[in-house]
C-alpha cells in the first residue's frame, strides 16, 4: 500500500478536527465527543488491528507517520494510545469499547488519562481494560492524569515507542515554527534569524529534531511487541531531544512563545509531558545499560548491530 494515500487524508482529518482552537477547548475541559467521533468515523483507530480482525493491518513502522501527525498537531485525545490498545485487545480476543483508551504504565501521570473513557494496563499479550477512574494532575490545562491501582509495567516498552513517535512529530512542527519565526521577527533592523548566535541555536534544534525522528523510527521498526533495546533507544533519544528542543524554541521566540494565545506552548507542554511519561531518558538509559552490561565483553558497535 502507498502510505501517502493514508497520510494525506489523515492529515486533513486532523487539521479539520484539531484546530488550535479545538485543542484549547478540550484542554480547558470542554466536550471532546465531537472530536473523538471524528476519529471513530474515520476508521483510523483500527489501523493497527490485524486484517483478519477487521482492521487495516498496518505495522507500527507503517503507522508511525500517522502517529507523528497526532504529535505534530498536539491532538489532545489518546488517538495513538487507542490505536495500539485496539490492536492488542483484538489480538487477545477482547472487544474494545468505543471511547478513548489511555495506556497507563506506572505510578506517574498517564498521558491523556483525564480525557479517556478507559485505561489499558496489563501486558501486550494479556491486556487489561478498566473504566477510567482518574485523578487530575492539577497542572494547568493538562489532559494527563493519574490512574492509580493498575499494573501496566509490561506495556511500558510499547507505550514508550508511542511517546517517542509523538515527540518526533511535535518536534518537527516546533522546528518549522521556530525557523519561520526567526525569519519573520525583526530586531536591530534585521530578522533575528540573521544573527549568528540564533542560527547556531536553530542548527542544534534541527539536529535534535532529526535525532528524535531517527530514534522514534528505531523504536517503530520492532512493532507492537517491541524489543526492549529498541524501545529504550527510541524513548531515550526522543526524550533527550524533547527537553532541548522545547528550551531552544522558547528562547528564540522570546516572550510571545510563553503566552497562552500563541500555539508554541500547545506543543512544548506536550513535549515535556511525553518526555516524562513511560520512563524518561534516564529510566531507559538504565534499562539499556543493563542490557549492555550483560554483554560487557562485546564492542559497542557489535552490540548496536544486534540491537
Amino acid at each position: 500500500m502507498d502510505m501517502q494515500e493514508l497520510i494525506d487524508p489523515f492529515a486533513r482529518l486532523i487539521e479539520d478536527l484539531c484546530t488550535p482552537a479545538a485543542v484549547r477547548a478540550v484542554e480547558a475541559g470542554g466536550d471532546s465527543s465531537a472530536m473523538w467521533n471524528g476519529f471513530v468515523e474515520s476508521g483510523f483507530l483500527d489501523a493497527l488491528v490485524a486484517e483478519e480482525a477487521g482492521g487495516a493491518g498496518l505495522s507500527l513502522a507503517d503507522a508511525a507517520p500517522l502517529i507523528a501527525l497526532l504529535g505534530r498537531h498536539a491532538v489532545p485525545l489518546p488517538v495513538g494510545d487507542t490505536m495500539i490498545a485496539r490492536a492488542l485487545l483484538a489480538a487477545a480476543g477482547v472487544e474494545a469499547p468505543a471511547g478513548p483508551i489511555a495506556i497507563a504504565t506506572g505510578a506517574g501521570p498517564a498521558p491523556f488519562a483525564a480525557v479517556a473513557s478507559h485505561i489499558l494496563s496489563g501486558s501486550p499479550e494479556v491486556p487489561v481494560l478498566s473504566e477510567a477512574r482518574v485523578e487530575a494532575t492539577g497542572v494547568h490545562h493538562d489532559v494527563d492524569g493519574y490512574a492509580p491501582g493498575l499494573d501496566g509495567k509490561a506495556l511500558r516498552a510499547v507505550a514508550a515507542m508511542l511517546r517517542a513517535i509523538l515527540i518526533s512529530g511535535a518536534a518537527e512542527r516546533v522546528m518549522e515554527m521556530t525557523v519561520a519565526y526567526a525569519n519573520e521577527r525583526s530586531q536591530f533592523g534585521k530578522p533575528i534569524g540573521k544573527q549568528q548566535a540564533v542560527q547556531q541555536q536553530l542548527s542544534v534544534l534541527a539536529e535534535q529534531a532529526v535525532a528524535a525522528r531517527i530514534a522514534a523510527a528505531i523504536g517503530a521498526r520492532s512493532g507492537l511487541t517491541p524489543r526492549l533495546a529498541d524501545a529504550a533507544i527510541a524513548k531515550h533519544g526522543a526524550s533527550l531531544a524533547a527537553a532541548q528542543i522545547a528550551a531552544i524554541a522558547h528562547a528564540v521566540h522570546g516572550a510571545i512563545g510563553i503566552s497562552e494565545e500563541y500555539d508554541l506552548q500547545l506543543l512544548t507542554r506536550r513535549l515535556h509531558g511525553w518526555r516524562l511519561a513511560d520512563g524518561s531518558e534516564g529510566y531507559w538509559a538504565g534499562v539499556l545499560g543493563g542490557l549492555r552490561m550483560d554483554e560487557a565483553g562485546k564492542p559497542t558497535a557489535d552490540f548496536l548491530r544486534a540491537a
Partner: peptide
C-alpha cells in the same frame, strides 16, 4: 564488569552512551 559495579547511576551512564550512539549510527 571487572570491578563488578552495577549500581543504577552506572547503568544509566552506560545505557545513555549506548543509546546515543545507536541513534548516531543510524543517522
Amino acid at each position: 564488569e571487572a570491578v563488578g559495579r552495577k549500581d543504577s547511576a552506572t547503568m544509566r551512564l552506560a545505557g545513555s552512551l549506548t543509546a546515543q550512539l545507536a541513534v548516531l549510527r543510524e543517522m
